Computed example of a mutant assay.
Amino acid sequence: MTEFEKVIDDARECARLFRLGRDVEAGLAMVTLIESAQPLVERMPGEVSSSWSELLALMLDDQEAQNWISLADYLEYEWVQLLSAGQPI
């Protein structure tokens, strides 16, 4: 499994934890997830980095508001789509 695939799998698992209401565990997993994804994003084109910052802001707003379902959706769909868009073909 590549580093990219691991980050995608971890994002989906983190989303699952938020959907199950395991917000403390998911919050800790999300910190690790962001730390592991950051080096990947830094190697991607500039527009991905810009979108990455916007997505993180939205996710953190949802976390602060305890909107776990919306946060899970961002992780499972937008996060995966953004990282996939920055991957070379």
Results as ranks from 00 to 15, higher is better:
C14L: 01
E64W: 02
A26T: 02
L83A: 05
A11K: 03
S50K: 12
E78D: 14
V31Y: 03
A11G: 05
Y74P: 00
A15F: 01
S70C: 05
N67D: 15
T32W: 05
E42L: 08
A29V: 02
A11Y: 01
F18K: 01
A26M: 06
S70Q: 13
Q63C: 02
Q81D: 12
Q38C: 00
L40S: 08
T2K: 08
F4R: 10
E5M: 11
L33D: 10
A72C: 10
D73P: 00
T32Y: 06
A72L: 04
T2M: 02
A37E: 03
R43G: 05
W52N: 11
S70T: 11
V80S: 09
D61H: 03
L40Q: 12
L83F: 08
C14Y: 02
L56W: 04
E42S: 12
A85R: 15
A57V: 06
T2G: 15
V7G: 01
A57M: 09
Q63H: 09
S84G: 07
D61F: 05
E25N: 01
A15P: 00
D73L: 08
L83T: 08
I8Y: 02
S49D: 02
A37S: 13
Y74D: 15
Q63M: 15
S50D: 14
I69P: 00
E42N: 06
T2C: 06
N67G: 04
E64N: 03
A37F: 04
P45R: 02
Q38K: 12
W68L: 09
E78N: 02
T32S: 15
E35N: 15
S70R: 09
A15S: 13
L55M: 13
L60E: 15
D61K: 11
Q38Y: 11
L83P: 11
R43Q: 14
L28Q: 14
S70V: 06
L58E: 15
E3G: 09
S70I: 01
W68N: 12
P45N: 11
I34T: 13
M30A: 14
Q63S: 02
D62C: 12
I8K: 03
V24Q: 14
D23Y: 09
L55T: 06
L83S: 07
L55S: 06
S50W: 02
Q66R: 15
L17N: 01
L82Y: 07
D62G: 01
Y74A: 10
D10I: 00
M44G: 06
S84T: 09
I89M: 08
E54W: 08
S51R: 14
S53R: 15
A26Y: 07
E13C: 01
L55K: 06
A11M: 03
S50C: 07
A29T: 09
W79Y: 15
D10R: 10
T32A: 14
R19A: 03
F18T: 07
S51Q: 14
A72W: 02
G27C: 13
M30R: 13
I69L: 09
S51V: 03
V24H: 09
M1Q: 10
D10K: 10
N67I: 00
V80C: 10
D23W: 06
L55I: 05
S36M: 05
V41Q: 04
G27V: 05
N67R: 11
A57R: 15
L82N: 07
E5T: 11
T2L: 06
